[in-house]
């Protein structure tokens, strides 16, 4: 890759890290989203309002502010709590964990709304029929609820994923070597910032475009049972 002044491999490394951060945050967001959705639909008013506060706060605060709060604030918190557990050395908070944690936490709120909608969209009759067959709650959930809600959750899930990938660019600000930071380093060394940021922009476009094709395929697959109008 003489085209990128020898910085090609470094950009690819950064791209892999971006993908790693994205996928791990997605995993965390999915888990939090599911928990949040179940909390929002639970009969307990405490759980419901806790989930409501969670989604409202996240929607009101910029991701960068949250990330800086977690990164700098977490640092102090960890070192204040550390001594109580017999940990006397100074602990440095890992930007990777701070980044994945914050992005996962933010998108968990968006996933909560997506999953809540999907669970509500499942036809009540299906659930009743499953219970009538004598299935346990767990069986109803894994055999009926989950496969059916995937169809309703996929479009929202896909949108969240596309926004999430772009949000990972922020981890470069807290010092993680993702592709944006790799590009910044290369740009500094070669004095060709436009070239490198453009390469990174095209990388993002490639990732999102491939994701869109995959999501469309999945959406088709999970909607096999639906008759289309027209």
């Amino acid at each position: 890759m003489s085209l990128l002044h020898g910085y090609g491999p470094s950009i690819i490394e950064g791209t892999l890290l971006t993908l790693e951060v994205s996928l791990l945050s997605l995993l965390l967001a999915g888990f939090l989203g599911f928990t949040g959705a179940l909390a929002k639909l639970s009969p307990s008013p405490v759980l419901r309002s806790a989930a409501q506060v969670y989604t409202t706060v996240i929607r009101g605060v910029p991701d960068l502010v949250l990330m800086l709060l977690v990164f700098f604030g977490g640092q102090i918190l960890v070192n204040q709590i550390g001594p109580y557990f017999g940990y006397d050395e100074y602990i440095d908070i890992n930007p990777f964990i701070a980044g994945v944690g914050t992005i996962g936490f933010i998108f968990g709120a968006y996933m909560t709304e997506t999953f809540r909608g999907a669970i509500l969209a499942v036809n009540k009759g299906q659930i009743e029929a499953a219970y009538a067959y004598g299935m346990s709650s767990f069986q109803v959930f894994t055999r009926i609820m989950l496969p059916l809600m995937v169809r309703h959750a996929l479009p929202g899930f896909g949108n969240n994923w596309l926004v999430l990938i772009k949000t990972t660019a922020l981890v470069s600000i807290i010092g993680l070597d993702d592709m944006v930071r790799k590009a910044a380093l290369a740009a500094g060394a070669t004095r060709k910032p436009f070239t490198f940021y453009l390469v990174v922009a095209i990388n993002y476009l490639l990732i999102t475009t491939v994701s869109i094709y995959l999501l469309n395929y999945l959406e088709k697959r999970y909607s096999v049972g639906v008759r289309r109008e027209e």
Binding site: K166, A169, L170, F194, L198, A201, Y204, T208
Partner: peptide
């Protein structure tokens, strides 16, 4: 399709 941060860097530094 691209992050706002990268767009801003493209303009400001690029």
């Amino acid at each position: 399709g691209t992050p706002l941060l990268v767009q801003m860097f493209l303009v400001y530094y690029g």
